[in-house]
Design a protein around this nucleic acid. Structure first.
Lengths: 231, 231
DNA sequence: GGTTAGCGTTAGCCATGGGTAACAAAAGTA
DNA sequence: TACTTTTGTTACCCATGGCTAACGCTAACC
């Protein structure tokens, strides 16, 4: 019942089933580190759970062979080969689901994440593949994130965000962080979507203004930080 | 861990999350009684859980307002208006999912049930509606069961089964019980599918033989009991 | 060096889901 | 009516998920 759920970020969903919890931890570790070791406390913050819960989950995940055994308790968490494969499978399912929900069922952009978040835990890999085929094996989801078809760690070159760009620079929007409904709604309304090419007009601590074509829009810094771009 | 799971029947799935369990109980009560009161012991048998678990679930369901309050402990379980609405929504989601999985993703008939069984607990009503629209609001699922679009208790006139028919009678297959993979596979292989018109050639305690067109197939009595027909 | 902040762990509690054993009350059956 | 089976309940146990309080350790910070 106690579900604090910060502003827009990941809300684990109050419905914890055993396998669902494991998958959430594995996913979190993967998202945070992209293969690299992650501090347990970071995972706790990310998932909005106590450090204690992470500590307990750690044991279970190790038993399941999803986590590399730790040398000392303080060693950062590292996914095992199996854990990484599971994480990538989750990401694949998530992005395929988002793509399907958006393209075929017209689910609005800002609702994709939460809807996919629940379904991704219950569909089989076979079903995910069938969805991929149905969609024609799309290479990226509606938020601009690449869809990994094999278990490769998905070369995570962290692109710069719109907030980190100097005034005057031209950039192409690559992807939007999909976990914040409100931000997505605002960005979509402003026309800042994957594929859009724009130029930074202003960039101060509070606001980032961008121009594309004839239109100039102001984004809050928080929103600008959720936009990944390529120059 | 202890999951006995009888032959092919409903296997609750070891992944019990709070809401999932509630929905399974409500669905079971609905499927067994079709609106009429049901004995708790029957529910226990149907879901492969102990009577104790049902007894405990009863309290929770009453608290949630899904069950009508009982006069005496021995009173059969009866869904409340709210419980019935939930049950019908579950059935609707289940059948829409099966239809979509079969028609769009070509998931084989005998795997539809278990796949839909997991997904139905995590999709929103809005999503179910979108799927319905996507499919053109089909009136029945691949097993021949009607899809309820409103919350009407879905007039359950229990059709006779193929096993209860006298030799020589002509009948049209209306639906197949979708919960038994093995039976579905056998029936589909034998060509006994919703829509097929056939005639009963033999009907004894072990076997039921039917003819359709030039083909004559023998079905085990158990399988024949899973085929609902109209004469 | 000392203080402070952050991290991971243990102990103890709550709720949910599920199970046995045991028992009294109902329902069937002879 | 008397005996047997079925049914629902209570008392206890187990595991999972999560939480707070409290403690020791480590690593910055002054």
């Amino acid at each position: 019942m106690g579900n604090k759920s910060t502003p827009g970020l990941l809300t684990v969903g109050s419905d914890r089933s055993p396998s669902r919890a494991r998958e959430d931890y594995v996913k979190a570790i993967y998202q945070l580190g992209g293969g690299a070791p992650v501090r347990a406390a970071a995972v706790a913050r990310y998932l909005n759970v106590s450090r204690v819960s992470v500590s307990k989950a750690k044991r279970l995940l190790e038993t399941d062979g999803l986590l590399e055994a730790q040398a000392t308790p303080a060693t950062p968490l590292q996914l095992s080969r199996k854990g990484r494969a599971l994480a990538v499978a989750m990401v694949r399912r998530h992005r395929l689901l988002e793509t399907f929900l958006h393209q075929s069922l017209s689910v609005p952009l800002e609702r994709l994440h939460s809807e996919a978040e629940r379904i991704e835990h219950v569909i089989s890999d076979d079903l995910a593949l069938r969805i991929a085929v149905f969609l024609g094996r799309p290479s990226s989801d509606p938020h601009g994130h690449p869809i990994p078809y094999d278990d490769a760690p998905a070369a995570r070159t962290p692109l710069p965000t719109l907030a980190s760009i100097a005034v005057g620079t031209r950039a192409r929007v690559v992807s939007l962080d999909d976990r914040d409904d409100e931000a997505i709604r605002a960005l979509a309304a402003a026309g800042v979507l994957p594929g859009t090419t724009l130029r930074v007009e202003r960039n101060d601590t509070a606001q980032v203004s961008v121009r594309y074509g004839k239109r100039v829009v102001s984004l809050s810094r928080r929103h600008a930080e959720m936009v990944r771009i390529a120059t």
